[in-house]
Design a binder for these strands. Structure first.
Lengths: 199, 199, 199, 199
DNA sequence: CATTAAGCGAGACGGTACGTCGCGTCTTTGT
DNA sequence: ACAAAGACGCGACGTACCGTCTCGCTTAATG
């Protein structure tokens, strides 16, 4: 997801060892899960992966980018399932969000990750295009399907819905309680579907 | 808000200088606003305030608590205004939230603050009782008034509404854009009022 | 010999702990003796001394200055003994030089130390005033005594003698052999005394 | 001078490119002259020479050997001139030494080189046979000629003279001043000739 | 009114992590 | 087989903060 930092002519010199790549990612996930984001240092990751720090810095520019790539990889390929109804689709979407954010590594990494991304303008931009944009287009797909079914009228406030759903999920996972209620997805989806009812 | 860390016999020896207290808080707000949460160190705060680091540690146990107290002080006394309608009340409540989180120092401090609080079980508990609980009781008041007016039936999912409103506000401010749309509060309140299914 | 790096108002704040000072110097001498100059790192010195690296950098600006002070301390107070004859005085002087340079720590440190000093203009200047100048004045004293005894005429090339004696000692110790012949001092002194004979 | 590290069956595969060899030596001399010995790294030499680091390591075992060969090449063939007198011969010899050690690259490289050689027993041995031995035999020749002329008696302390002359030259160049006095050679030679007691 | 305990500015202290650099080796693709 | 390029494990660099501690000095309330 995050691209290689430099593309030095592609095929000159020794190629990067993919086993090193994966050892680093695995070590990162393990450390974040065990010790939390703050206590995870690049040096510790390298040591656990059996590499030098340079091998890490050669691929990622810092802890935030490394952890982001290590922890959030399944998300990309989310295919936005079609359950036959808007409420069902949104419930599935929120369940996917909840599932992703509730995974041990993700839950441990999220707050610190958000803080680091928020602090750096470059990372801020990056997370918007890599996380927010796909989510928004996924939502747009869902609403397009609903419009074809005749469930909604034309003008749906996609941005507002995104704020609401993603915000609620993050808020719940990050602040309220570590254990997310299993029925939360359905209740949130229901609230939103009724809420956007265009009269 | 955060109490003095120890109460050594109450009144023996030299009392704490309140000017030091305020100099530290002012320096904290300034530094957070100028440089961000991560780049704000206790040492820098002390230097800017013209004090020693001990004067800080004597009053607060760490950066998170210091910044929390320095940045979020107006919130407490939020009186929950009565606008005459549920939608109006919720709009006012969200506007207050937005106003608080959009202030320069707060916006700069929030993500890092949340990360530090999330990482520490003790702080996690503290923020729940000092921030979440008042918000929840505020919301409960609003809904009680609405019930008296006959606007809502009995069972209102207060927790869900809190997740939705606070989550959406934080998500919007923290991730989507620094400039919050002014109509966001009304739209959010409308969505929620319709969404909690009372017709 | 090498002065403290900064004199921060002398009596403000916590004073430096002299036990730390000595622990560092001891650790330095030990490490240089055991592992050599190149293999002696600031970090290793600090670890062996049971301090942090800062405690070292606070007092010395680098390895060269630290090792110099740790290894060469007895030299300063060399009082230039009066043996009654020029040859005797010079022999004693060379013997002192030999003794100092042949000590385990000194022999291990000398070449690397000289390299580092030579590479840095500031250190170069420093070593001249702290090492060369005292040696020169010591030699000058010896020759003044000799002149009073009538052993030498007026114009003695002190610089040349210094080059010869110190150079020969260093060359012998550093390059020729680790074991310095015990009669070297006398032979060198003899050569010089005859050599400067002003006809 | 320093031999190639391995002779792999003499002539199998592609022969080494002599232009690479010279490019490396040139780059080494340039870098040492410009930046000093310590700041000269194998990587920098390779980059400057337009080669890879392996091309360097294939020919020399490390920085010390590389710089030694790059900087000291003219010395070998020193033919020990016959000026007709012992003093003249020694003056010429010292002048040659001074000339060699005062060259920009040599002066920049010497201290660091000596340190590296001193630290490694293998290199120590090597420098003795390649530098000390020839110098000693050159001196021996000079004194043999002097004996044939009747200028000296039999037992001349060649080792002592070598220590004195070479030591004084190195000491003067390396520590005292970058600018060597032009009359130094003659004064040193005079001192030694008088000092070796032959009247 | 002297005592005394705490506050205070300053800065040293033992740690830990940072991100960079050089080392000498290894592994590619092109000669 | 050599060459250029560059990845690799390693270890040192010098800096920055952390949170605690020790100084000398105020500063009030108490005995």
């Amino acid at each position: 997801m995050v691209k290689p930092m430099t593309l030095p002519d592609a095929r000159r010199g020794r190629p990067r060892d993919s086993r090193v790549h994966e050892a680093i990612l695995t070590a990162t996930v393990d450390l974040v899960t065990e010790s939390g984001y703050a206590a995870t240092s690049i040096g510790a990751v390298a040591a656990r992966a059996g590499t030098g720090k340079d091998a890490v810095y050669r691929r990622w520019s810092g802890k935030a980018e490394l952890v982001y790539e290590a922890v959030f990889t399944a998300t990309e390929s989310a295919p936005v399932p079609d359950t036959g109804s808007l409420t069902g689709d949104l419930t599935a979407l929120v369940e996917a969000l909840l599932h992703e954010f509730t995974a041990p590594a993700a839950a441990a990494a999220l707050p610190g990750l958000l803080a680091d991304f928020a602090a750096d303008p470059g990372l801020r931009t990056r997370i918007r295009s890599h996380f927010l944009a796909p989510a928004k287009s996924g939502l747009a797909d869902v609403f397009e399907r609903a419009a074809r079914r005749g469930e909604t009228s034309s003008a749906v406030p996609v941005d507002l819905v995104l704020d609401t759903l993603a915000g609620a999920v993050f808020f719940h996972v990050g602040l309220v309680g570590e254990s997310a209620a299993p029925e939360l997805a359905g209740r949130l989806a229901g609230l939103v579907v009724r809420g956007i009812e265009v009269r």
